[in-house]
């Protein structure tokens, strides 16, 4: 992953991480700063797409890098450094979204209908759990984009405007259109099941 760096540099993440690992204690801080600073713009830009606002993006990015600083010694080199940093940013962003999640509204009745459907006992046993039954139902009912938006919104509780910006959805109502479409499809499929006794 190419960091969005301000100036071209022959340094690589691997070299900078190795330099940090082998640095004298009094030089480690500066070595870590050199490594992380390569990602300030990338993480900052991503946080801006998530929050839609500069100050909030800076606060989120700050928490990401503080956490990364604290846990840098846990990076084992099993993935690219940028991927490791992304995992911290992703977790921090989703934790924040979950803390700010809004209560259910009336438009989510369709979700209740589906979530409370009773699959027949044999299918439930074959799929181990209601969760897996719902996964299959989702896969058979929604297209890939709807599933992705649905998962980010209802699985990770990301706000719709954030999903619109992150996925670069260019339709006029962004992620909301996919959620509306997904709910409609899920409701129809749930009604079919209730009416005919079908199972996904």
């Amino acid at each position: 992953m190419k960091p969005m760096d301000q100036t071209p540099s022959p340094e690589t993440d691997e070299k900078l991480f190795a330099a940090w690992r082998h640095a004298k204690p009094e030089q480690r801080r500066a070595a870590a700063d050199r490594l992380f600073a390569r990602y300030y713009e990338r993480v900052g830009g991503w946080c801006f797409r998530l929050t839609g606002e500069r100050e909030s993006a800076a606060d989120l990015a700050q928490d990401v890098f503080l956490k990364a600083h604290r846990h840098l010694d846990s990076f084992q080199g099993n993935s690219q450094f940028g991927t490791w940093l992304y995992s911290i940013a992703r977790n921090e962003a989703i934790n924040r979204s979950k803390r700010a999640a809004l209560p259910m509204d009336d438009s989510e009745e369709a979700l209740l209908d589906v979530a409370t459907l009773e699959p027949d006992p044999e299918q439930l046993a074959a799929r181990n759990s209601r969760a897996r039954w719902l996964q299959t139902f989702l896969a058979q009912t929604l297209d890939e984009k709807e599933r992705t938006v649905f998962t980010l919104h209802y699985g990770d509780e990301l706000p719709l405007d954030a999903i619109t910006r992150l996925l670069r959805l260019e339709n006029s109502s962004g992620a909301k259109a996919y959620i509306v479409s997904a709910k409609r499809k899920l409701a129809r499929a749930a009604q079919r099941i209730l009416a005919r006794g079908d199972r996904p």
Binding site: Q6, Y40, G44, R54, Q62
Partner: peptide, 16 residues
């Protein structure tokens, strides 16, 4: 987004 990314990067340098 590019301008915001640069602004946040400058802010991170200032803060961190």
């Amino acid at each position: 987004e590019t301008r915001a990314g640069a602004w946040v990067a400058a802010e991170l340098h200032r803060r961190l």
